[in-house]
Design a protein around this nucleic acid. Structure first.
Lengths: 118, 118
DNA sequence: CAAATATATGAACGACTGTTCATATATTAG
DNA sequence: CTAATATATGAACAGTCGTTCATATATTTG
């Protein structure tokens, strides 16, 4: 009963640890949402768009030319970024300018870069 | 020539901005790698594994029981996490214990949570 | 050695995702 | 109003990904 001799099917489990960790796990829904957020960062096109918006507010066409993508592809991706509240639109006549929604985007990407570069 | 009257196919582009941003973009390969890193975080199973390892060093079977997954599924995911240097293994006899590789994992997940929760 | 067990791995299948293409909507100019 | 244009969106297709199942490898026990 020391937590090292309990079975899990055919496998042994460190039971005490598992119980302890279980208690500290956030709700499933929150973990799901978190994964959804990272999924949005997990595409090089979207990363490029976000990086471009680090520097300046840009319209859809600017981004398309900058990254060598079709207007449609960019628009679809901006929709994803917008629905995760990572970018925000500002409409000016026919043109829609996009910019970063908040500083979490910068921080997250910077942290990610640090990991890559070490 | 004020940067507002150049064409991009049928579309108008803010040329000066685009040129300026282009110069500041990191290399494509780096952006690709960054997206790959975030892709690893972009799965709720892997997020759960990482969160579990926040609390304790755990073996494959512990994680499987904790999350209600098969041993195989967990092992496959640990492989992904390991190859991104997010977790590290410690072998002890038949058992392999996994723990977080460094603190970037915590920081990144914490930042992501902040964005989710605001 | 053989048996038991903890983990790893390869193949395959279904589900999801990013792009393209065609088209719709919205705004401005004439 | 119509024409031009900037963006958005729906459908479809190809490629990717996570799981399962079967099996291989590695370690300990007897």
């Amino acid at each position: 009963m020391d937590g090292e001799i309990e079975r899990c099917g055919f496998l042994f489990v460190h039971e005490d640890m598992v119980r302890q960790v279980t208690e500290k796990m956030p709700e499933d829904e929150k973990l799901y949402d978190l994964a959804e957020l990272f999924k949005v960062f997990g595409d090089s096109t979207r990363i490029k768009i976000l990086y471009a918006l680090f520097e300046a507010e840009l319209c859809v066409c600017d981004i398309a030319q900058l990254l060598g993508l079709t207007q449609s592809a960019v628009s679809h991706q901006l929709r994803v970024l917008k629905s995760s509240r990572l970018v925000k639109p500002r409409k000016d006549g026919k043109t829609v300018f996009y910019s970063l929604a908040d500083d979490h985007v910068r921080t997250l990407i910077a942290q990610g870069m640090e990991h890559i570069e070490e």
